[in-house]
Amino acid sequence: METQNQYEVDLGNLLAFNASHHFPSLPSSREELVKECLQEGTKLVQAIADRLFNLPSTEDVDGPIVKLPPPTTKLPRSKHLPKPKPPTKWELFAQKRGIKKRKKDKVVWDEQTGTWKRCYGYDRVNDDNDIPIIEAKMTDEPGEDPFAKRKGEKKKRVEKQEKNRLQNLKQAAQVGALPSHVQLAATALPITGTQAAPKKIGKHELGDVAGIAATSTASGGKFDRKLPGEKAPKNQGKHRKFLPVVEGAGIGSREKEQTDKVLNKLISKHSHEILNVDKAITMYNVKKEKKNRHKQKKNEPEKSSTSSKLKPKKKPNKKSAMKGSSKKGRAK
């Protein structure tokens, strides 16, 4: 009993501390030192065991089970205490108005179908999809689809709720009481003028791009190793398609039809009407102008080159321009 008092025992951590022990003189050899330490340790362990085995225990298959008291040595936490969640805007409002939560049943009797149905979620009571008829009212505007209106209203309500939720989460994040599995991630900043945030490129799009890039080798990607997820480029191969010339019943007759159509247009009585004279004239004029311009360029290539050489004169850097001009003069 005497020994127990001189030791500090923390049963919750199975910890014992002998503060009064003092080596009068350190033992000379290591072995003796260790031996003495173990002796002291044994005393301490015995002191813990004395208390531990005297605690009320319940027998179990694996052995006696003892209820430990909470540890007395104070040790720091590894993380801060969880912060209480701030009340949402609705909760504040409800408190002000004295609105109390009431429990709803999970399943509700549906009179339309005569069955028990879920209150929310899939296959629920009063689902928008299940309503076959909406009665007309005096206030209805003509030409409006009541079903679409209903759907739109629902969508708006959902969007509003989502907005409210984000707002409440933002407020919780400010206090640092965000639920552990929720993260508020900043999406790309909205650029003025663009409405939607830039879209992230998906797996399939990347595969398409990789396929296009692979065709840039000399062989057109024929002998290259395929990347994982790479897709064959679209629209590869024949661009022009010719119909079969051999006459036949189905596709074979198509070619004939096509040529017939063109010929009929040309040879027909009102063939002159096909030609849009105004358009033809403007086209002719444009072509002529282009030709003329081309000719001029070809005729006076020297002139144009000199003009380009003289251009630096116009530059505000006067010195170099002056030099250039003087040189030109001497050369001539």
């Binding site: 199975l14 910890l15 014992a16 501390f17 002998n18 003092h22 330490c37 340790g41 301490l44």
Partner: peptide, 8 residues
Amino acid sequence: PFICFVGE
């Protein structure tokens, strides 16, 4: 484990 501390 048991934990023992010895020494002033």
